[in-house]
Structure formats: C-alpha cells, structure tokens
C-alpha cells in the first residue's frame, strides 16, 4: 500500500494504491496536509487502484475534507469501484463528497 502525489495543473492528485486502513491513514493525512501547508488548495484523491477502506480511512477523508474547506480549498474523489461506492453510501459519505466516475471528469469539475 502506498500513496503517490502529483500535480496536474493546479490540482494535487493523490493515488491510493492498496488499502486505506488504520495502519497507513496517517501517512495519507500527513502528505495531504503538507501540500495544504505549501499553499495547495485543490485536491483530488483517485481510488482506481484501491482495495478496501476501513472506518479510520473514511475518518481521515472526512478530516481532510474539513481542513481543506477551512482553508478555502476543495477535496474531490474519483474512481470508486462498486464496493467502495457501497461503503460511501452505507455511511452516507457520498453526500459529503463530490465523487466523479473518472479522473478526467473529476479534474474537469474543479
């Protein structure tokens, strides 16, 4: 499991490879917060290569969303497979995040 960060224009794109769970969520949080501190304000997390997400992983996404909004920025999500989408629907987090089917659509939505 790992996270890779790249810039596409003015958007910071984070790829989550593998699981987003209690054992690695702090790593994701810190990487995004470092970018926020550097002045970045538009963030996209892409789950195309993600396995499963546990409650602490969901919690980090909620926390990051709040912190980015507090700084006047936006966090959007893309490429949730059917099971991840079910997870967001079960927890109603699909109502909190703007979720796009593809990375391109998400990038175009900012």
């Amino acid at each position: 499991m790992s996270f890779s960060i790249k810039k596409q224009g003015e958007i910071v794109v984070v790829d989550v490879e593998g699981q987003l769970i209690v054992g690695n969520r702090q790593e994701l949080k810190q990487k995004v917060l470092d970018e926020l501190e550097r002045g970045e304000r538009k963030f996209l997390i892409d789950f195309a290569q993600t396995g499963y997400i546990d409650s602490s992983g969901l919690g980090v996404l909620v926390s990051l969303s709040k912190k980015i909004r507090e700084q006047g920025g936006e966090l959007r999500l893309a490429n949730l497979n059917d099971d991840l989408r079910t997870l967001f629907e079960l927890t109603k987090l699909d109502t909190l995040f703007q979720i796009s089917d593809t990375r391109d659509r998400a990038l175009a939505s900012f």
Partner: peptide
Amino acid sequence: NIEREDGRG
C-alpha cells in the same frame, strides 16, 4: 455524525 472522524467502526 456525518462529519465526525470516528464512530463508524
């Protein structure tokens, strides 16, 4: 509870 970081386990 939606915007809570914890409490979903």
